[in-house]
Design a protein around this nucleic acid. Structure first.
Lengths: 237, 237
DNA sequence: CGTGCGTTTGACTCTTGTCAACTGCGGTGG
DNA sequence: CCACCGCAGTTGACAAGAGTCAAACGCACG
């Protein structure tokens, strides 16, 4: 593991304020692996044997039922996943797949549970990590229940624009079909959504999106701190 | 506070295994209040000054944006709410309103945060409470994104039937308009959903629902442990 | 017995999903 | 070097699901 990686890890809420010893014990027996794009890291309905931390690349969390599939979340560095399943020693509710080449740290689940009991500060960090993950998910639920597909797209664009420097343009960091699944719509509808937003200050060319009139788009999107925002925007890949 | 109430509280995961002293310190300065039906306990976007625990009655957690309103969750005894906002010392993402007369324990938020640092076992209990709340919410998100309104209704009926004794019938514990909002549909569509389910073994008369052919309904509902279930069914009011 | 409100029903509209054909770009191989 | 292929994305026509509006129903309450 590189020094730069340990730096990254210590930026996580998850490791905020934990004892140096706990940190080292967590890292020591863990695997740092590089995966090509498209690798399935884990499948829903399987036991959670590791806690995963994304150091580089993008990971898609998805779920399927009755033939349909949806994307729950897309994680960039530095984020962790299936923490709740690890703590409950339960099965995963989501599948994970790399969207780009990715470097991922895998910490054995039972080690996490051990350290939890031993280091009070670590447990505290876990509490805050879980609490914010919970709030993020509640927001996403509201996003789905209270807005139309095109509205979700508009708000996603605004968030992404901010995360990519706030200069009025952004690059969609993965295939549009995946963005569509994440937003809870079909690829066809996403395409129509972009057409509809051209009347609200959005121009698109391939994966390149220009927000020519951010005020107009904001008016349409009606963002709310009770639904959007809340977490730091996804860093660029 | 009655002895029966302290018994109830100790059944919560939230208080599982905590020191007797912590428990008493949490209860001592807290308010146990009775509210009539329809009382607004808190509104979204307000700071979370108390942790709420439902001892009797039903509480609706809802949220609105741009004139639309949706129901996120409906809680019976013994459940707690806005734990995540209390821990993060942040604003509420949901409003809370009693659906029936209710008895509710209110614990000051700063007291919760204090006890968290002092009692390791209490923190552990909080971790598990948060982890399961998180998983519940992920399941609800999947429920919304992967199923149609009528499918959500079918699965809700199956869960509710189990929670009410598993004898093939159930009583809807609140107004249908509220059930509709919880399921993410309009009251009109809920009504049509019930009509549609009459072809799948469901008969309804007012708030009384008879599941005459549970096999048929299950076939239609296609329940999955990765979406449904997971938590104990809502106790009867 | 009348009133009020939640619910139901019907007709209609709008949104979203589905299916199929077409476009355009990138990569392969002749 | 260029033709061809594959596949993501787009577009159009259609179907299905869900929301809207208005009227009628029915149960509870005064």
């Amino acid at each position: 593991m590189r020094a730069e990686d340990t730096e990254k890890l210590k930026c996580l809420n998850f490791f905020r304020g934990v004892k140096e010893n706990t940190f080292r014990r967590a890292i020591a027996p863990s695997f740092l692996q590089s995966f090509p794009a498209g690798t399935i890291l884990l499948e829903e309905n399987r036991p959670a044997d590791f806690l995963y931390i994304v150091l580089d690349g993008l990971v898609e969390m998805s779920s399927s039922a009755a033939g349909d599939e949806t994307v729950i979340e897309i994680l960039g560095p530095v984020n962790l996943f299936i923490l709740a399943a690890v703590l409950n020693n339960d099965i995963c509710l989501q599948s994970a797949r790399t969207l780009t080449p990715a470097r991922i740290l895998m910490i054995p689940a039972n080690l996490i549970r051990e350290l939890l009991s031993e280091d009070h500060d670590f447990m505290k960090a876990v509490v805050f990590e879980l609490a914010s993950a919970y709030r993020r998910t509640i927001k996403e639920l509201k996003n789905q229940k209270l807005r139309s597909g095109t509205e979700r797209l508009a708000n996603w664009l605004l968030r992404e624009e901010r995360g990519q420097g706030g200069e009025g343009r952004l690059t969609i960091p993965y295939e549009k079909r995946i963005l569509a699944a994440y937003l809870g719509m079909t690829a066809e509808n996403l395409s129509r959504g972009f057409s509809a937003l051209s009347a609200h200050g959005v121009q698109i060319k391939g994966l390149q999106v220009d927000i020519v009139d951010i005020g107009k788009l904001s008016d349409y999107a009606r963002s709310s701190p009770l639904i959007d925002d809340g977490e730091p925007p996804l860093p660029r890949n």
